[in-house]
Amino acid sequence: MTLDFGLIVQNLPEILAAFWMTIWIWIVSNILAVAFGFAVATLRRYGPGWLGLLLRLFVEVIRGTPFLVQLFLLYFGGPFIGLSLDPIPAGLLGMTVYATAYYSEIFRAGYNAVPVGHVEAAECVGLTRGQIIRRILVPEMTMLVLPQCVNMAILMMKETAILSIITVPELTLVVGAIGSQQYAFVEAMFLLALFYWFLVEVSGFLGRIAEARLSKFRFAHS
């Protein structure tokens, strides 16, 4: 087996486009999923009982089934119920739905981790529910959930590779295709692995910096 890494240099434009696709889908789906996940957790806490039950079922089903099966159901099953999506929108939607369930559980745990006394104190001084969420729960919880959110975002970075199976032109698909064309699939996959590793390590590093900055006041006042 000879390692021929020239194939990366020769196909740089396509690889860069694929890299951008991976990053773009990753960022957009994570931002949407954090927003929806927060909404789901909040509705499960304050919404009507039937809605809470429904959302709980949604979370359980998404968390209990493989991402790949969800994608197949959406991409191949969707057209049968009038939901014909191209690979990229299907991938984005699939990622968002999947991550929403996980983020909502993180936020649910975050809500529960805020000391009850703080909420009771806020009620005593007459804050409304909206004010309590905005001024007490969210600021306190942000710091508590940040490590898990970073963790989840990194997991989602790795999940983007699965989008290649429904032919989203992201890194895994494009690098794999180049590798097959050039009869250098193993080298291509090897480089791809190193690349994901690099991305994950960098995201983890940035996440730790963010955590350190956001929890600084904890030590400043104690």
Binding site: K158, A161, F185, M189, A193
Partner: peptide, 23 residues
């Protein structure tokens, strides 16, 4: 630990599946 947790499982599987015959 860092490598196997930092690389998508799909990429690991494709790599191992194709690497074994190659060697």
């Amino acid at each position: 630990v860092s490598l196997f947790r930092g690389v998508p499982l799909l990429v690991q599987l494709l790599l191992i599946y194709n690497l074994l015959p190659a060697v």
